[in-house]
């Protein structure tokens, strides 16, 4: 099972991950990303990976 996490220290609130996979990447009222459920559903793996790859702050970690 793929796991995803957002480093909240690194995240600057670009929302690029959210724009690609809002089902997994959430954004709070301060614009920063967070994860509600770290286990990534099989069907969303590709989208979650794409969301991580566009982060200009490299704030997202995937463990496969």
């Amino acid at each position: 099972m793929m796991k995803v996490s957002v480093n909240r220290e690194k995240c600057q609130g670009h929302n690029r991950c959210y724009m690609i996979c809002p089902q997994v990447y959430k954004v709070d009222a301060d614009t920063y990303a967070y994860i509600e459920e770290e286990d990534v559903p099989e069907a969303l793996r590709d989208q979650v990976r794409r969301g991580a790859e566009v982060c200009p702050e490299k704030a997202i970690t995937l463990i496969e």
Binding site: Q12, H14, R16, R50, E53, V54, C55, P56, E57
Partner: peptide, 11 residues
């Protein structure tokens, strides 16, 4: 893809 552009600046 990927397009981690920095047009809006980073940091």
């Amino acid at each position: 893809h990927p397009n981690p552009h920095v047009a809006f600046v980073v940091g």
